[in-house]
């Protein structure tokens, strides 16, 4: 009906309804949908709702892990086999290029680095596919879309745990020393998770607008691997490259992680700050980009 016919009483009732709706958020008795500019949804109700529905992200990730494992003969063993084989390939390659006096610690460093890098690249790859892959769900239901990439990060993290156990076996087999400082690696693991969450949200959004993203991703990730302190020790960087490598977020995040885990070396304070800084920057930029766009996803899929 034309708005000209609206009486003052209607306006008052509307206003009351809007007030009630704005107080109660998503799950309220009254919801009001109005046009909005491209922008962020109200942050507090959004994150409250995100937290409330986190069992969905957990269940989605669990179900996907189950269904992925039923199709191959080795099943779950591939979670370990995959990064292990990759580490072996790089070890052979690097040993041909430049034989080292002490291959043991280097191999341990290589596996720890590759396992961790695999976690981040896994979160990024599955995260990028999460929104586009959940098309029917997104087109037909209203829920905080951030749950989709978060589920991908959870999947990647749980796939990272078995390789981590394997790393400790390698650590022991190579006769590397155990020290209490290894526990501090958990800090960098936390940075990895936060960083991966931000990047997963970022690439999930990119994938909605450019479906080529996942095709470029493997090459992008490979270059990133070479630029990260995985195939080389952090102190082996040529002096002329060192200033630039600090701009790689994984320089501090992965560097700190492997230094602590493999050698028990406590990195300088700068590395700790840098790792946290990159993680927070990634999560803020990634989440805000995702959230500012997510209400458009339903029409873009």
């Amino acid at each position: 009906m034309p708005s000209a016919g609206m009486s003052a009483a209607d306006h008052a009732a509307n206003k009351a309804a809007v007030d009630r709706a704005s107080k109660s958020g998503y799950l309220s008795d009254v919801q009001v949908y109005e046009p909005h500019r491209v922008g962020l949804p109200p942050l507090v109700p959004y994150f409250r709702e995100l937290w409330h529905r986190r069992p969905f992200a957990a269940e989605l990730s669990r179900a996907e892990m189950r269904s992925a494992n039923t199709r191959t003969f080795f099943g779950q063993i591939w979670l370990v086999l995959n990064p292990l084989l990759l580490a072996a390939v790089y070890f052979v390659l690097l040993f041909i290029l430049a034989p080292r006096d002490e291959p043991g610690p280097f191999f341990a460093h290589l596996t720890a680095g590759i396992f961790a890098f695999y976690f981040i690249s896994g979160a990024l790859t599955t995260g990028a596919r999460s929104v586009v892959g959940g098309g029917a769900l997104i087109g037909n239901m209203a829920f905080p879309r951030l749950l989709m990439p978060m589920s991908a990060v959870r999947t990647a993290f749980f796939r990272f745990l078995p390789p981590l156990v394997v790393y400790f076996v390698i650590h022991a087999a190579m006769g590397l020393p155990w020290s209490w400082t290894m526990v501090l690696a958990v800090y960098f693991m936390g940075c990895m998770v936060v960083f991966a969450a931000g990047m997963a949200a970022m690439f999930a959004t990119l994938q909605v607008y450019f479906r080529d993203t996942t095709s470029f991703l493997p090459y992008f990730l490979r270059i990133w691997l070479y630029l990260s302190p995985v195939l080389w020790f952090i102190e082996e960087v040529p002096a002329r490259l060192a200033p630039f490598l600090k701009f790689n977020p994984l320089y501090s995040i992965l560097g700190g992680f492997t230094d602590l885990l493999v050698r028990g070396d406590v990195p300088p304070p700068g590395i700790w700050v840098m790792a946290a800084g990159w993680a927070v920057a990634a999560v803020v930029v990634g989440f805000l980009y995702f959230m500012s766009r997510e209400r458009e996803f339903a029409v873009r899929l």
Binding site: N14, D29, E34, P35, G139
Partner: peptide, 21 residues
Amino acid sequence: GGILPPTSGRIEVHGRISALL
């Protein structure tokens, strides 16, 4: 169901919708 935002106008829904679940 709140899946598509309206371009103009206003929608008021009193109750929980099973939006095309």
